[in-house]
């Protein structure tokens, strides 16, 4: 059986992680599946503007950076109950389809299979969401580079809606209760769906197994190679720079 690389980056500074993320895409090690756990942070989508999306005065204790893919803000509070994953794959129309939505669907299938394992009614909602009973439980973002794709995503185990709204640039705070209720309608998380907390390592190991089953591969633990490490170092200044984050 074919072996692909697996990396668990553990608890990371999001700026370092985004540099490693890009380095894996632009490196030469081949197909890779990886996890990471972000510290308190906000990742802007490629096209977003920090001062438009965020109440920056309230974000002072957050690490903010920007990723190379589009989509919306990825917000991590200090509860850290989010599973963040990345996939780098060579586009081949079979495992990783050329069609963008089809390729989202294929990779999101790993999350759907995981949620179904827990007895939940999970489905893909184009373009890039995974939903449980039509409530979003996972957001995903993809970019492409020289015949390869990079997909990042998050599976929510817990989520602090009030904190998310507090740091967002929402003008009318007097409607906060209404706003919270409407987010609760559209968004959900695993702890809420199951009515209990699952061990994060357990959820990650099921995701890993579902990945292996879906792609018919064995995931072999590994690390960044020398070239990727060099690439990471050369990319880090970008993810730390105000020119990139606040452009």
């Amino acid at each position: 059986m074919e072996e692909w690389r697996f990396i668990d980056f553990g608890l990371v500074d999001i700026r370092d992680m985004m540099a490693m993320d890009e380095a894996v895409l632009k490196g030469d090690e081949g197909n890779t599946f990886f996890f990471w756990t972000p510290k308190k942070s906000i990742i802007l989508g490629f096209f977003q503007k920090a001062e438009v999306e965020l109440n920056l005065a309230r974000c002072k204790d957050y690490t903010i950076t920007r990723r190379i893919s589009g989509g919306g803000i990825a917000f991590s509070d200090d509860r850290c109950r989010q599973i963040n994953y990345g996939v780098v794959g060579t586009i081949d129309n079979d495992l990783f389809p050329l069609d963008i939505i089809e390729s989202y669907k294929q990779i999101c299938g790993v999350l759907i299979d995981t949620l179904i394992h827990y007895g939940l009614n999970a489905a893909f909602r184009p373009i890039n969401d995974v939903v449980v009973d039509n409530k979003k439980i996972s957001g995903n973002a993809q970019t492409r580079w020289e015949g390869k794709l990079l997909q990042n995503g998050t599976l929510l185990l817990d989520f602090d809606i009030e904190e998310m709204l507090r740091i967002s640039n929402i003008p009318r705070e007097k409607f906060m209760d209404k706003k919270i209720a409407s987010v609760r309608e559209g968004l959900t998380w695993l702890d809420r769906e199951l009515g209990e907390q699952r061990d994060m390592d357990e959820v990650r190991s099921i995701m890993k197994r579902k990945f292996e089953e879906r792609f018919h591969v064995r995931l072999k633990p590994g690390n960044l190679n020398r070239k990727e490490k060099e690439l990471t170092e050369s990319l880090k200044p970008k993810y730390y720079s105000p020119e990139w984050v606040y452009r």
Partner: peptide, 15 residues
Amino acid sequence: ITISGDFFLFPEEAI
């Protein structure tokens, strides 16, 4: 003009 938002567009720099 500046175009921003949470859409997806490849290649990103083309925006």
